[in-house]
Design a protein around this nucleic acid. Structure first.
Lengths: 342, 342
DNA sequence: TTGAAATGTACACTCGTATGTACTGTTTAT
DNA sequence: ATAAACAGTACATACGAGTGTACATTTCAA
């Protein structure tokens, strides 16, 4: 007891059951005729020895590892963990285990992933180079990329899944405009390095496009960016809301930023939603816990997760699935409500 | 282009470089004398063919998969995702990739994990049976269990890491008492099935023990449990806070619950912290975003993650590390502040 | 009765890599 | 000069499983 037991292999089972290793294999995989009596002896031996076929050996022989890897930018994030959690459910039922890795964006990282012989890869990272995706594809590994598929050129074993970042952002901005906002400000992410969202950031593009489609110009005055901490965001928002400002709507890149903005407004006596309407993105739990309730844009996480796994398993099975784009859901709460008598 | 390329193997490299496969192996692993000139030829061939040693074959031969699995109860949770994220960092640098799986708690699940030949397992699940942990140990796989190690019997290849749930809960309750609370209520988790935290729940035990250590009795009136939704919690909290109630402190099992309680209080006109003090657990982002700021108990996530990986790598290397218990950090914000002139 | 079909078993090879061991040729110490 | 140490290479085997193929035995139809 407590000692490392030698690994139990097929050979041990065969010996105990008094049959050949081949028979054991057939019983385990249930894919050949085996005499009933021998089958029972094998099953008995498997139970007695607590034998479990080694998945690594199977992977080597069968070219299938039954593992999927999910590569994301920032896995610390309610949205991602929900997605992962859901994927885990579906994947496990399909016989897969999920590995998780934040994007390292180096050739060594790509080699690591390829050499580990994953059956499939799911990438959710705005900054993940298409070049790497194609390397996966060429290595024979199917990839599902969380990205809008329009304008993506078709590559074998690569499927695109749009999660609605762009259209969701437009929906949010449209909602603010419909609620009467004329001077909407976008709050960009916090980055320790003070970076600004790249122009291919879907939420930002959605903001810009919807603003312009409604005849509003977007300039530096309508974007808060480059902040390196919650405090900086708070200060910057307050600065823009000072008396005389015409800002009447705020769209936060995520719910956290929207909350910070909303709180900042409260601190200088600006009423939400009466004087300022705020909307976030992600439908994270904070949006329903804060007061006033934060309007936000939700993504269909369960469906997205299921679709990702489905698309991947299809590709693993050899067929090429259709790309998919998902709709978002606008969730209206108090922060954008029309005040009574408005 | 786009076609599945045959997998590049050592044999291909050997052929192109005009050497034996053995030499290729020696160059790759850099563990034998190889003539400089041949070494260069091999390196050249590796580059040309874009060869990457197959990790599955290596795992089979070398008994090391360079993969770790993290088994948790609910991976949808800011605390867990932070831990995972940090572990990913440390593990990757140590050459490991992390798999993630929510606890299934069935023998089949255990078999799945064992058969996949992980080098190590990290378990963070209150409901994970010790029996299973011992099965891992017997299969020769080191396990780090997020659990207080007192009263745990020593098992080879099993190390315990206390994250401070128990002491942290006591600290939170003590803080409320120090702030003058005499009637503290504990808010238990929301469960779709209306379940109640089992008696071995660390936070609940901490609450009970600290209350009793201070001479306060714990009864049904001091515990809100069995709620199946945010709304139920809100209603129940309001019910207990109605005029005439003596409740003056609330300890939420996590920050979300504490927020719900705090909001509920606000809805019936009870001032926090003047009339009611509230503290949560987890130091999740919501605690700094809500108004008033929520006092909470933080865990040393980075240290915990690093320690988990360290302990695991030590065990993988064959030595038995010391168990560790981590302290929590009390984070005081407005929700338990002493009002001016108190 | 005879041959074909169905049933049942096992050898031998394969997946891609690591390495113990043996072997050859060269250098160094005695 | 001779042995010992070293440099450099390659064969053969092992890791744990899956399966093509060949072979043996039984069942069944004609």
């Amino acid at each position: 007891m407590g000692e490392t037991r030698e690994r139990v292999t097929r050979a041990d089972v065969a010996k105990l059951a008094g049959v050949s290793e081949t028979i054991v294999s057939y019983v385990i995989n249930n894919n050949r005729y085996v005499a009933k009596e021998k089958r029972q002896r094998v099953e008995e031996a498997v139970r007695l020895l607590n034998y479990r076929p080694n998945n690594v050996a199977r992977a080597l022989k069968g070219k299938r590892s039954n593992q999927i890897i999910f590569i994301a930018d920032h896995i610390t994030n309610e949205y991602f963990s929900s997605i992962v959690s859901e994927m885990d459910r579906y994947a496990y039922d399909a016989g897969y285990l999920i590995s998780l890795c934040s994007n390292r964006n180096t050739p060594e990282f790509i080699s690591q992933v390829i050499s580990r012989q994953f059956d499939g890869i799911i990438v959710s990272s705005a900054s993940f180079p298409t070049e790497y995706v194609e390397q996966f594809s060429q290595a024979g590994i199917p990839v599902v990329v969380f990205r809008r598929w329009r304008h993506q050129r078709a590559v074998e074993r690569v499927a695109y899944l749009g999660t609605g970042l762009y259209t969701g952002a437009r929906e949010a901005v449209r909602h603010l405009i419909n609620r009467g906002c004329r001077n909407v400000v976008y709050i960009d992410r916090i980055s320790a390095k003070g970076h600004v969202s790249p122009p291919d950031d879907m939420r930002f593009s959605g903001f810009v496009d919807e603003m312009e489609a409604n005849g509003f110009a977007v300039g530096p005055e309508s974007v808060v960016c480059g902040c390196r901490s919650q405090e900086e965001v708070t200060e910057e928002v307050k600065r823009r809301l000072r008396t005389g400002s015409r800002v009447d709507g705020i769209f936060g890149r995520n719910d956290m930023l929207a909350c910070i903005a909303m709180t900042a407004a409260g601190q200088i006596g600006i009423q939400v939603p009466e004087q300022l309407r705020v909307i976030g993105f992600d439908d994270s739990s904070i949006s329903r816990l804060i007061t006033p309730g934060l309007s936000t844009v939700g993504m269909k996480k369960e469906k997205i997760a299921k679709a990702a796994i489905d698309m991947l398993t299809q590709m693993i099975a050899g067929s090429q699935p259709e790309n998919q784009d998902f709709e978002t859901v606008l969730i209206e709460r108090e922060s954008t409500a029309v005040p009574a008598g408005f």
